[in-house]
């Protein structure tokens, strides 16, 4: 059996991910987090904040709730079922920042917490910001032409 054949053979031995169940929970929990976001959005706009500020406040509140859930050790319990449902919303981003911060406390607050905070979420910021700058350059060039 060569390597390629072995890989195929080994793959057959693995029971597949329970797609139906995973999709259901990802949809349900992801959807509920967004619905909660909508409720916050409505609440802030009810309190009279400007539309753009409402979106920012909603993000901050969700990040706070995620940090709290991560801090008390519950976010990962939910994520076990939710999968992408807790990964894709901004709460997943917060969890990716907060969980290494807590984990690497043992290595100290500077080189542990500080240096590891963006160990997982760093790529999101690096590529998101870079993509926005590339887009900005294109927009700017078009605007002066």
């Amino acid at each position: 059996m060569n390597n390629h054949e072995y890989k195929k053979y080994a793959q057959q031995k693995v029971s597949p991910s329970p797609m139906g169940k995973n999709l259901f929970f990802a949809f349900l929990i992801g959807g509920l987090i967004c619905t909660l976001g909508q409720a916050l959005l409505d609440l802030f706009s009810f309190w009279g904040f400007e539309k753009k500020i409402c979106f920012t406040l909603t993000s901050i509140t969700l990040v706070f709730l995620s940090a709290l859930a991560t801090g008390i050790g519950k976010y990962d319990d939910l994520a076990k079922y939710a999968g992408a449902g807790t990964l894709v919303p901004i709460t997943g981003f917060a969890n990716a920042v907060v969980s290494p911060a807590i984990e690497f406390k043992d290595e100290g607050f500077v080189m542990g917490v500080g240096a590891n905070m963006f160990k997982i979420a760093g790529p999101v910021i690096a590529y998101g910001v870079s993509a926005s700058i590339v887009g900005g350059i294109i927009t700017y060039v078009i605007s002066i032409l």
Partner: peptide, 11 residues
């Protein structure tokens, strides 16, 4: 990953 990171394990 860190223990509190929300990841899903494969079968």
């Amino acid at each position: 990953f860190p223990l509190e990171y929300g990841g899903q394990r494969t079968p």
